[in-house]
């Protein structure tokens, strides 16, 4: 019985990762690709780690899987925030049919203290 549940989590996680990879190829600019990575790929990794901790009932496996899940959840949005900020500051081209861009021309640099 536990095999079926773990197999379900494995297949769901790998499908989410495949969807994230398709999104990286298909979507039209950097920010949209960031949407795909920071949501679908994180959820895929979490589901696969749930499958591992279902199959191996040991404390060390659970603690390490929990560590990876917490790192992924906490750091994926921060990393995408930094890359999107850097990409917008270096004037990367945006995709078609943008409605508005209120960050255009706004200076958000932190002034030097020295």
């Amino acid at each position: 019985m536990i095999d079926w549940i773990a197999a379900f989590f494995l297949i769901a996680g790998s499908l989410f990762m495949l969807v994230a990879a398709i999104g990286v190829v298909k979507l039209s600019d950097v920010y949209m690709r960031m949407h795909a990575i920071t949501k679908a790929a994180s959820l895929g990794a979490i589901l696969m780690l749930v499958a591992v901790s279902l199959l191996y009932v040991q404390w060390i496996v659970w603690i390490e899987a929990l560590m990876v899940v917490v790192f992924v959840i906490l750091t994926a949005p921060i990393a995408s925030h930094m890359i999107a900020k850097a990409a917008h500051k270096t004037n990367m081209p945006k995709g078609p049919n943008y409605v508005m861009d209120e960050l255009e021309g706004v200076d958000t640099d932190i002034p030097d203290k020295a």
């Binding site: 494995l10 790998s14 990762m17 990879a21 960031m34 990575i37 790929a41 696969m48 780690l49 890359i83």
Partner: peptide, 24 residues
């Protein structure tokens, strides 16, 4: 260049998945 950095993030998630499948 940011497109390629995004790919680095994707490959990291994929290799976490590959490690998990190898463990099982």
């Amino acid at each position: 260049l940011p497109d390629r950095i995004v790919v680095m993030d994707l490959v990291a998630s994929l290799s976490i998945g590959l490690i998990v499948v190898y463990i099982i």
